[in-house]
């Protein structure tokens, strides 16, 4: 005899669409925009891709701060190309998010109203030229480490956007490395400037991989859906492993006294990360949160007449063509 309590544990039958979705994921195939997908999968992707897009767009600010003061015409041209790339990356990602059923306007509105998140790394100020080096080497380096596995994300448009982005990011990291290397080969003051920038950006860059695995509630589901391929801690560890020899080439010291190769584990031991700082910045109390959003809102508002005029021009042109 079956009691009502027994019935409640019987799982509901998955629908044919759901079975197909599960099969595609199990086969490590790709989900495309018009496929059926669970609502939670769609929501997770909209959140992740739009946050990613916002990060690229807000990420233009700390660097554009140095375009007018770059130390040479060559560096100025490079920095402009890099900031232009970040804008492009933001647009690729907004397009990818749009295929999930949200408009770019909605996403932009969420950003300028402070309802959306972006990578908290961009809430730190860039007081010296060496910060351009540290951002390229550490911040873009961490981003690449995170993004390369995302090229295989199960959602097709996201993966394709990431392939394009990763190709372009490698120039960003190399130019950052070169800025720091040149400073390290310069005067004592320049070496100090480079080391100071590395000291300030190292920990925030490691925080970019997100909270430790045991405190990352969404990770398991994202990995089950093949959106995320490696855990936060694994990626962070991989990144540190790449940084150590690069820092040696440059002659900078990574600001972690506990950083040491561990023969047994085959990876680097490192200090505990100060997550209270991360949480503060994430909660909007970082050094530049308000400034970043204010600037974005300003740019959006000041550009409104251009968007309207262009739309009006297009409307009149097509009306004229219709008559002719």
């Amino acid at each position: 005899m079956t009691s009502p309590a027994d019935l409640s544990v019987v799982e509901r039958e998955p629908s044919p669409e759901e079975l197909q979705f599960n099969d595609l994921i199990a086969a490590d195939s790709r989900i495309e925009p018009r496929d059926w997908m669970p609502e939670a999968y769609r929501k997770t992707l909209i959140r992740q891709i739009s946050q990613h897009a916002h990060s690229e767009i807000i990420g233009m600010q700390p660097e554009s701060n140095w375009i007018t003061r770059a130390p040479s015409l060559k560096r100025k041209a490079i920095l402009m190309a890099k900031v232009q790339d970040e804008a492009g990356h933001g647009l690729y990602l907004y397009s990818a998010a749009q295929t999930l059923g949200i408009t770019r306007d909605e996403m932009m509105q969420q950003l300028i109203e402070g309802r959306a998140r972006y990578s908290s790394i961009f809430n730190y100020p860039t007081p010296t030229w060496a910060d351009m080096g540290a951002i390229g080497w550490l911040v873009d380096g961490a981003a690449i480490c995170n993004q390369v596995p995302l090229c295989r994300a199960s959602y097709g448009p996201y993966g394709r956007a990431m392939v394009r982005i990763c190709k372009e990011e490698s120039f960003h990291q190399r130019q950052g490395f070169e800025i720091l290397l040149e400073l390290m080969q310069g005067t004592e003051a320049q070496r100090q400037m480079a080391q100071d920038a590395v000291d300030r950006w190292y920990w925030p860059a490691l925080q970019m991989f997100g909270p430790p695995d045991d405190q990352s509630p969404n990770s398991a589901q994202s990995m089950a859906w093949n959106i995320k391929r490696f855990s936060n801690d694994d990626l962070r560890q991989r990144f540190v492993g790449m940084l150590v020899p690069q820092a040696e080439v440059m002659g900078v010291t990574l600001p972690d006294p506990a950083l040491k190769w561990n023969e047994e584990t085959g990876q680097y031991d490192m200090s505990e990360i100060d997550w209270t700082e991360f949480d503060e910045v994430l909660a909007g109390r970082g050094p530049a949160n308000a400034e970043r959003i204010r600037r974005r809102r300003e740019a959006h508002d000041e550009g409104a007449w251009v968007r309207e005029a262009a739309a009006e021009y297009a409307r009149k042109q097509s009306a004229r063509e219709a008559v002719a």
């Binding site: 018009r34 749009q98 295929t99 408009t103 968007r307 262009a310 739309a311």
Partner: peptide, 10 residues
């Protein structure tokens, strides 16, 4: 095509 909302100015 997915992404086309018809509600955006552009």
């Amino acid at each position: 095509t997915p992404g086309e909302m018809g509600t955006e100015p552009w």
